[in-house]
Amino acid sequence: MKLINLTTTASLAAIMLVGCGGEKPRTSNYYLQNPDEMTEVIDKCSEMSRNGETISDVLSKNCRKAMIASSKMIHSSL
């Protein structure tokens, strides 16, 4: 029984670590070229902020870069 619990715990820890490493830091130019992803990141950050959730360092940087890209898109359309 202890072996099953240990295996389950180790498996869950491995899954969580893999999930955390999935985000890459992006540039504002990346988001200008990928507007759908820009919108997704901005929406995700806004929702997490409204819910009082902690935003990871990489996601926080991506939020700022996505907002910069969004601002550039708006200014270029004027």
Results as ranks from 00 to 15, higher is better:
45 C>A: 14
40 E>C: 02
64 R>E: 10
14 A>Y: 09
16 M>I: 03
60 S>Q: 14
11 S>F: 10
24 K>L: 05
22 G>T: 06
72 K>S: 13
18 V>T: 14
20 C>D: 10
24 K>F: 03
39 T>K: 08
53 E>F: 07
59 L>N: 07
50 R>P: 00
51 N>G: 02
49 S>E: 12
47 E>L: 12
71 S>T: 12
62 N>P: 07
12 L>E: 07
26 R>F: 01
25 P>G: 05
57 D>H: 10
10 A>Q: 08
18 V>G: 12
56 S>P: 12
17 L>G: 13
25 P>R: 12
66 A>I: 01
30 Y>C: 03
16 M>V: 03
31 Y>V: 05
49 S>P: 02
16 M>F: 04
56 S>K: 11
9 T>G: 00
17 L>Y: 11
39 T>C: 00
39 T>M: 05
42 I>P: 03
34 N>F: 04
64 R>G: 10
21 G>T: 13
10 A>I: 06
64 R>Q: 08
50 R>G: 01
67 M>T: 11
51 N>Q: 15
56 S>D: 15
41 V>A: 07
10 A>E: 03
61 K>E: 13
39 T>N: 06
19 G>L: 14
49 S>Y: 07
48 M>G: 00
58 V>R: 01
40 E>M: 08
18 V>E: 10
37 E>Y: 06
37 E>T: 05
17 L>F: 14
17 L>N: 14
22 G>C: 12
66 A>P: 04
9 T>F: 04
35 P>Q: 12
15 I>R: 11
32 L>Y: 03
63 C>N: 04
50 R>Q: 06
57 D>C: 02
36 D>L: 11
